[in-house]
């Protein structure tokens, strides 16, 4: 059994009549990268603000490194590193002033702890005198991460760190996280991007304040119970509407410029050849159809459609 870092039992939170979190149960192991994956409004930020002692849970219990987020918030604030979704450093302070300020209020010395952030901060150090507000998106992120790490946190909580960041910076950011992980820190991250789920050790798929499933990305995709076909053609929207009319088709969804179709698990379900024939008969031109391996996004959509998930 791996050592546990964070446990949540029946965590719920409502704002007035709207329920942000229903009743979440989850565990995050020490030293792993755990991802909460879900669209905007799934409740990720609410959950993270509870984890970081900024918000009191409406119900349930959350323990981080054995400390209760409500009772032991003082201790937790020393060992947590948090990077909010919105850039929350001081725009009018320079890069080094920001770092020194956060080191200062955590009561640590920048020089003593420099080794902790050297890898990340080193990249923006040439711009140490520049105002934080004048940095590019990727650089802001590196600064924010440096400020969240300078006090040597045991658990790092990152709320949508890659939202609004270009593709190159996103990849770079994940590489930084992977290097951080080797230092043994527990990383909890949220993202609306399904492709980033594959980078995590384990993920929880969230939707409307619920966790639909938890596991390694591989186990989740391997458990996908249906056949998936990928169709590429010039008229993706036509393919979508045509296939949705077919029998024994569970779902047809647009994935970029292709259409993913999952079929029912019956003998009557159409094969790739039958689908292709049907499309041609309906007057659709050139298209390529192939059997595909389910990705996290397929699983996500499939789980969303299961009615029993919305209790």
């Amino acid at each position: 059994m791996p050592e546990v870092s964070i446990t949540g039992e029946g965590v719920g939170k409502s704002y007035g009549t709207t329920t942000a979190l229903k009743s979440l149960d989850f565990t995050v192991n020490k030293g792993e990268v755990f991802g909460f994956i879900g669209p905007d409004g799934a409740g990720k930020t609410t959950l993270f603000r509870i984890l970081t002692t900024l918000l009191l849970p409406g119900s349930g219990k959350v323990r981080v490194e054995g400390y209760d987020v409500v009772k032991d918030y003082r201790i937790l604030r020393r060992i947590l590193g948090y990077m909010p979704g919105r850039f929350s450093l001081y725009h009018d302070l320079s890069v080094e002033e920001n770092l020194r300020f956060f080191a200062g209020i955590f009561g640590v010395d920048v020089r003593e702890n420099y080794h902790l952030v050297k890898d990340i901060y080193g990249q923006i150090e040439p711009f140490a005198k520049r105002k934080a507000g004048k940095l590019s998106g990727g650089m802001k992120q590196k600064l924010a991460l440096s400020c969240a790490l300078i006090h040597e946190p045991v658990v790092l909580v990152l709320d949508e760190p890659t939202t609004g960041v270009d593709a190159v910076s996103r990849r770079e950011f994940w590489e930084m996280l992977m290097r951080l992980k080797t230092g043994g820190i527990t990383i909890v991250v949220s993202t609306p991007y399904m492709d980033e789920a594959m980078r995590c050790d384990r993920v929880a798929l969230m939707q409307q304040g619920n966790i639909m499933t938890t596991g390694t990305p591989q186990s989740i995709t391997a458990a996908f119970p249906h056949k998936i076909y990928r169709i590429k053609g010039s008229a993706a929207l036509n393919i979508l509407s045509l296939t949705r009319k077919m029998k024994h088709i569970r779902s047809a969804e647009l994935f970029g410029d292709a259409v993913h179709i999952s079929t029912e698990n019956t003998d009557q379900a159409p094969t790739a050849a039958e689908i292709s024939q049907y499309l041609s008969a309906q007057g659709l031109g050139r298209h390529i159809i192939s059997e595909a391996v389910a990705g996290i996004e397929d699983c996500f959509i499939d789980l969303m459609k299961q009615p029993d998930r919305h209790v």
């Binding site: 900024l54 929350s88 955590f106």
Partner: peptide, 13 residues
Amino acid sequence: EIGTIEQINVTPI
């Protein structure tokens, strides 16, 4: 308003 309070509030200050 600019959200910097979040980052302050998670510190032990």
